[in-house]
């Protein structure tokens, strides 16, 4: 069963003369955990930003559950470069804002933790429930949405319970230890009721013990919430343990893809990470 949740077709992101991502094509199937790895500056986070609508790709198209959510093909000078004479193909432009993409069911966490710093743990998750509201500003102000508000609060409490954050729910989020802050970011992303979860270096700054816990945790939420997960990670233990498939980027280009075993044996990947063996 190949039920494509996310598909990237020829995604290119160019900033001036720098090609951050070069013609990246990849796909994530339902229920998979897919990792995106590569050395620093390989364009992994940029690819995430393109998926979530932060950047509009210079070229290419992104499909979510078979539906085009981002599409941009170059015009003017760039068009000749990419399209040649095939002009008719390149007419559509879909450039949604990040909130619209989140509403479709793509949630993300950030490489540098971006919690709402003045808010409590509970409120951080509760605010993320805002996008599934049915109330408008009038009904919300005059408390005509009490039932929905109650439901949101119950769901938030339940979510915090599942993720083991309920005991700290009234604390300010900045007082939490680092690992729990990362976990709270995941909780916040889950509150938006995503189908696809994008994790940007979830294990950054964690010790081996915490990383091990995180491995179990990601597997658990994937099963519990029926998620598809796509993550960027540098901890190879985590990546190799948990991933169904791996994509390797280097200098913006895809250099390898496959199962963890295939990637571990791939000479190009080893060269990219460790440098070429000059004697070979």
């Amino acid at each position: 069963m190949s039920d494509r949740v996310l598909e990237l077709k020829d995604i290119t992101l160019q900033f001036g003369g720098v090609v951050a991502v070069n013609s990246l094509s990849m796909h994530v199937d339902r229920g998979e955990i897919v990792s995106l790895i590569g050395p620093n500056g390989a364009g992994k986070t940029t690819a995430f930003n393109a998926i979530t609508g932060v950047y509009v790709p210079t070229n290419g198209c992104i499909l979510f559950e078979g539906k085009k959510i981002v599409e941009n093909y170059p015009h003017g000078k760039m068009k000749k470069l990419y399209a040649g004479s095939d002009n008719g193909k390149y007419t559509q432009h879909i450039e949604p804002t990040p909130d619209a993409i989140t509403k479709l069911g793509v949630a993300r966490t950030f490489q540098n933790i971006r919690l709402w710093k003045t808010q409590s743990v509970f409120d951080n998750v509760l605010i993320a429930k805002h996008l599934r509201r049915t109330s408008n500003v009038f009904t919300a102000t005059f408390r005509l949405n009490a039932a929905e508000e109650k439901k949101q609060r119950e769901e938030t409490a339940e979510l915090l319970n599942i993720l083991g954050l309920y005991s700290v729910k009234d604390q300010n989020c900045t007082t939490l230890p680092y690992g729990l802050q990362r976990r709270l970011e995941i909780a916040r992303a889950l509150a938006t009721e995503p189908k696809l979860l994008l994790l940007d270096e979830p294990a950054a700054g964690m010790n081996p013990q915490e990383t091990l816990e995180l491995t179990e945790f990601i597997g658990k939420i994937r099963d519990d919430f029926k998620l598809t997960v796509c993550m960027i990670e540098h901890h190879m233990d985590l990546v190799m343990n948990i991933s169904d498939r791996i994509y390797v980027l280097n200098f913006g280009a895809l250099i390898a893809k496959g199962t963890p075993e295939e990637i571990q044996a791939n000479p190009t990947v080893i060269a990219a990470y460790l440098g070429e063996d000059k004697n070979a």
Partner: peptide, 11 residues
């Protein structure tokens, strides 16, 4: 508190 995070969370 954080515009980027707010937008990413669907606001």
């Amino acid at each position: 508190d954080d515009e980027v995070a707010a937008e990413a969370m669907g606001i």
